[in-house]
Design a protein around this nucleic acid. Sequence first.
DNA 1: ATGCCATACGTTATATCATAACACAATCCA
DNA 2: TGGATTGTGTTATGATATAACGTATGGCAT
Lengths: 131, 131
Amino acid sequence: MAQEQNLTKNQSLVFEKLSAADGPMSAYDLLDELREQGLKAPLQIYRALEKLQEVDLVHRLESMNSFVACAQPHCHAKTGLVAFAICEKCGTVSEFSDDVVQSRLADWATERNFTPTKTSLEIRGLCQGCG
Amino acid sequence: MAQEQNLTKNQSLVFEKLSAADGPMSAYDLLDELREQGLKAPLQIYRALEKLQEVDLVHRLESMNSFVACAQPHCHAKTGLVAFAICEKCGTVSEFSDDVVQSRLADWATERNFTPTKTSLEIRGLCQGCG
DNA sequence: ATGCCATACGTTATATCATAACACAATCCA
DNA sequence: TGGATTGTGTTATGATATAACGTATGGCAT
Ligand SMILES: [Zn+2]
Ligand SMILES: [Zn+2]
Ligand SMILES: [Zn+2]
Ligand SMILES: [Zn+2]
């Protein structure tokens, strides 16, 4: 919980809005909802998101240009790899990790002298309720 | 090779340009290079790319909004899951697949009644030469 | 052959996502 | 106390992607 304490005003606004949301939001979604709190420009959102991603409170969903609050804060030191299942009908996002997948990918990288910095793993499909 | 035969003119132009490239290209990169062949609008590129992705001749790299020709055409019926390692310095993209990762993700989905339609797995980092 | 359907094409306009560049303020700490 | 770092506010611009419209083509059933 330490990290939340250190957030600046804009970072807190963005993080709280994203945490309260029931699904992913785009940067412009966030901007629209934070105008009444005084935010006016996309950069204010993007800069906050950038910082929030650095401290693993927020993840970017590459396949849909949007962002979610982390579902398991403070566990990323252990997990390293984070995966998402994204329902294309209802928008629900499930965050999970898998040690076997992670070590398998680590092996692939090691064998080829590839130095990973960030991995994104996103499964699009239909969730239980929508399938 | 059957698939290449069936391509329309625009689809062939895009596919050949992408195959000849030594790395990923954005839709607008492609448009710039295909103007002399008569292409004029982004939609012409995007529509060709859409079709090429459907037949697995081209992959979209979600984490960088760009596209690559498939490195192992006609194997995707077997592999299903395709992964990419992307060098952030030199831009080299390595396409690979891994049965263990694939089955592990399939298990995750099965257990949760999640029906996958498309999975993207992209490892950013530094390749052997750039590390 | 005619009518119908599915697919591709061409074009203009617009929507959506993201960053450059600059000036200023707050904070940390040598 | 002064330099470095980080965050902020603002304007402008760049980059990526799709909507909406009309047309053309080819397959194929009547
Ligand atoms: Zn997380
Ligand atoms: Zn759903
Ligand atoms: Zn491929
Ligand atoms: Zn490299």
